[in-house]
Design a protein around this nucleic acid. Structure first.
Lengths: 287, 287
DNA sequence: TAGTGGTCTAGACCACTCA
DNA sequence: GAGTGGTCTAGACCACTAG
């Protein structure tokens, strides 16, 4: 109840708008979330503005701090509010959803045309001598699809877990190489990605400065075409959250696909886990 | 600590696997989630099996019930665990992700070819005489993109909020008709969808027994083609949750697109909010 | 050092389901 | 009525940030 206007713009009178209904069917934390969201929506709070502290909100609304935290956690997962440990909560900047025309251009090429910068960093490269084939894949491979993430070292989660189903390269039997890499667009995390290619085609030392398929083309003269893209939605695991700088439970666009050569032979499988608040993938539908 | 084996299969010895680490950097609820998930992953718990009650889990792991609930809430959002109020928690059945080859076929046609049944129900139809045009859209239209959902009557959220950006039909000025409808696949909720079409083209009484564009074709002889599909990921709002029978915060695949006639004139805008645990949309990429 | 968010506890009451 | 999950509280301690 003390004067909170010290440097930060005075927020609207939180809690004054309407008292929480304890008897109605709607939980208090949902009403609270809606009330905070409405003030952001109405423009009473602009992006970057500080919210009152959790303790202040709890006092203003006459609820416990845990109830406030539950409402805020929902807004944080949705990307509406951003929290900084030890600092405060703020209205999140509206992140622009970049429209990617996901044709045959790589992300680097597509974004460069729009004037955006793309940076890639290879997290790990691993050769697997006995890759997954139908029927022999361990149960861990389907774990990701079930929303299960590894509890131990995150680095051990390989392509198979990300892909979520048996795979193999019929035209290129033998060992494969798995890549895991991060992508930034305009210096903000964009996606954590997995790729697997036959070892016979794997570029010896891909460092992410160009696209993986550009590297394959340079090394072997083989051109890889995208032939299908499959889209779904998943939640960010703690692993995703750490890499992508989003809270656990944030929405991710799951993009899976296979690249093939001109003869239709599969050359690579790719999985992208893309920040749902940043990406909108556009695909032209042929008539 | 009493004997819980009464009719339900005796679950594995929860809590015996490893004690919670209180000093490590990983929060206890994340360790707990991982521990429960591992037992599901390992096959110790099969789909449909009952988990111990929250109180029993709290006692077995030596944590408070709230910590258990936090771990379970994460698994519920991810679709790994299903809870029934007053009954218990269960390992969720692995929902199959249907692959839709999202070409020019409607969902009804595409799924019928795979032997699945599709049912549609129109929730509401509304004529809007002054539809959103660039620059005149109220701030509420962008609310959905920011993860804000209406606190009042859910039925008032119209197409503009779902679409998230200004729109208009340059070739068909004048009033538009908004539809909101639900779709089931194999009698399980699939998506909640929004469509807006010029009033001049709107089928007088579409009831969902056929596809909206089939109805338009029958009424006016105008064939609508899909020309682009845009994919993103969002979280289920309480509104989505109620319709789609998923928990709040579950991942949804956001599919937006425009259908045009053979001359390229926009005839309709569509938004689908699709259960991420059920759908995987496939699109062929032209070379 | 003060204030903030992050975590966890013990306990309470309610709504719901089922024997 | 017993047992379950759903909600909420009051309080505690910690980690982090900043003046």
């Amino acid at each position: 109840m003390s004067d909170p206007s010290v440097g930060q713009p005075q927020p609207v009178a939180f809690g004054a708008s309407r008292p929480m209904l304890r008897a109605g069917g709607v939980p208090v934390w949902q009403q609270l979330r809606a009330d905070i969201a409405r003030q952001i929506e109405d423009g009473a709070l602009a992006p970057g503005d500080a919210l009152p502290s959790e303790a202040a909100l709890a006092a203003a609304y006459g609820v416990s701090r845990l109830t406030v935290r539950r409402a805020l956690a929902d807004l944080v997962r949705a990307g509406t509010v951003r929290t900084e440990h030890g600092v405060g909560s703020f209205v999140a900047a509206q992140t622009l959803r970049h429209r990617i025309d996901d044709g045959q251009l790589s992300l680097l090429e597509s974004m460069a045309k729009q004037g955006h910068t793309v940076r890639q960093r290879v997290l790990d490269v691993r050769q697997v001598d006995d890759p997954g084939v139908p029927g022999t894949l361990p149960p861990a491979a389907t774990a990701e699809a079930a929303g299960i993430w590894p509890s131990g070292d995150p680095a051990v989660a390989g392509f198979a877990a990300a892909w979520g189903e048996p795979y193999r390269f019929t035209s290129f039997p033998g060992p494969v190489v798995e890549y895991r890499y991060l992508r930034w667009v305009d210096e903000l995390p964009w996606s954590v990605s997995f790729a697997v290619v036959p070892a016979a085609l794997a570029p010896p030392s891909w460092d992410g400065t160009n696209s993986l398929f550009a590297a394959i083309f340079e090394a072997h003269g083989v051109k890889a075409w995208r032939d299908e893209r499959r889209f779904s939605a998943v939640l960010a695991t703690p692993d995703d959250a750490a890499w992508l700088e989003v809270p656990v439970g944030a929405p991710l666009l799951l993009l899976r696909g296979t690249n093939s050569d001109s003869a239709g032979r599969a050359l690579a499988h790719i999985v992208h886990r893309i920040r749902g608040d940043r990406a909108e993938y556009g695909v032209r539908v042929p008539r």
